[in-house]
Amino acid sequence: MIVRARAPLRLGLAGGGTDVSPYCDLHGGSVMNVTIDKYAYATIDASPDGLVHFLAQDAGAGERIAPGEAMAERTDAAGPLQLAKGVYRRIVAEHLGGRAPAIRVRTHSDAPPGSGLGSSSTMVVALVTAFAEYFGLALGEYEVAHLAYAVERNDLGLAGGKQDQYAAAFGGFNFMEFYAGDRVIVNPLRIKDWIHAELESSLVLCFTGVSRASARIIDEQSRNISEGDAASLDAMHRLKDEAGRMKEALLRGDFARLAEVMQAGWLAKKQSAASISNPRIEEIETVAGAHGARATKVSGAGGGGFMIFLCDPADRIGLVRALAAAGGTPYDAHFTLQGATAWKVP
């Protein structure tokens, strides 16, 4: 039996960063996001030789180890295989009674690490979903997302927030609330068809050409909050408020307000940590503004990866050409309303 799973990547529309501790523990966080038709994939089947196989196909990395060794390895070891190994250990320990199976786990993603689309967390959700299908585990969306969060943040010690795991598990347009004690509330939004179509036509996604390590940016944000930096804390409060305003603008189809909220959120985010923007990002933002972009933001923690622009659909082609001429790589992306899913192949 072969089991495959996929989980969608997400665009953070507003509130990103307020889902990260200690801010969400102290003040509560709010995030507005939507998933797109770019995915992380995981495949599990029986081992051909009694060993555990881990293969990160897009990174060209692979390893074969005995089941006992797979459980005994350090959980904080870095590298392209760490996510699959972390999920394997957690599933075996929590759901298989410590019985380590000989299986083959293969992964790949439509987006590179450091893209700002939540690729690492989405991969963990795809892995958890595949394991749940392969071993017949009854895990709902909340359980999948929480387990994925626990693997990344607790087991592997990777810095980050909570929105990516829940976006990948649930899919669609979601307004999310984050509180102390890992309490998360996901509020799916029913967006009218014309609003869905207009927003999809208005958004331009562009890769800056620079992948970034989000951990340094997140550490800076967290340190600013812990140390009581007034400017950073005020910026985070504004980011949280913008998520609520973004939700209202989407539900009403108020695109002028939506652009205003997105731009205000980007300005606030830049004030939460110095490393969020850089000369390359500012250069691309200037080019976009001169060619019809009504609002700009960087997806994810910042520092690079993908940028999101909101424009009049009539200006889209001109904006795409200008971004490409500036050295960016524009991407087409369409919204998906389905979260992580798995299926069996006989």
Rank of each mutant, 00 (worst) to 15 (best):
S120G: 15
S120N: 14
S121W: 07
S121N: 02
S121P: 01
S121R: 09
T122Q: 04
M123F: 13
M123I: 11
M123H: 14
M123R: 11
V124N: 01
V124P: 06
V124H: 05
V124S: 04
V125H: 02
V125T: 02
V125I: 03
V125E: 06
V125P: 01
A126L: 02
A126S: 10
A126E: 01
A126Q: 02
V128Y: 04
V128T: 09
V128P: 05
V128M: 06
T129N: 13
T129E: 08
T129G: 10
T129W: 07
T129D: 09
F131Q: 01
A132N: 09
A132G: 10
A132D: 04
A132T: 07
E133L: 02
E133P: 00
E133N: 03
E133F: 00
E133S: 05
Y134R: 15
Y134L: 08
F135E: 12
F135V: 09
F135C: 10
G136R: 12
G136K: 12
L137K: 06
L137A: 01
L137H: 01
A138S: 14
A138L: 10
A138C: 09
L139V: 07
L139G: 07
L139T: 07
G140N: 15
G140Y: 10
E141W: 04
E141R: 10
E141K: 06
Y142E: 13
Y142C: 06
Y142K: 14
E143Q: 13
E143A: 14
E143R: 06
E143W: 08
V144A: 08
V144R: 08
V144N: 05
A145L: 00
A145D: 01
A145K: 00
H146K: 15
L147I: 04
L147V: 02
L147R: 02
A148D: 00
A148V: 07
A148E: 00
Y149W: 12
A150D: 07
V151K: 04
V151F: 04
V151R: 03
E152M: 12
E152I: 13
R153E: 11
R153P: 11
R153M: 06
N154T: 14
N154R: 14
N154C: 13
N154I: 14
N154E: 15
N154K: 11
N154F: 13
D155M: 06
D155G: 00
L156G: 03
G157S: 09
G157W: 12
G157P: 08
L158K: 15
A159N: 10
A159S: 14
G160C: 06
G160K: 03
G160E: 03
G160S: 06
G161P: 13
G161W: 12
G161N: 13
G161T: 12
K162M: 12
K162A: 05
K162Q: 08
Q163L: 11
D164R: 12
D164T: 12
Q165S: 11
Q165H: 15
Q165F: 14
Q165R: 14
Q165D: 09
Y166L: 03
Y166Q: 02
Y166G: 01
A167G: 08
A167W: 00
A168V: 11
A168Y: 09
A169T: 03
A169F: 00
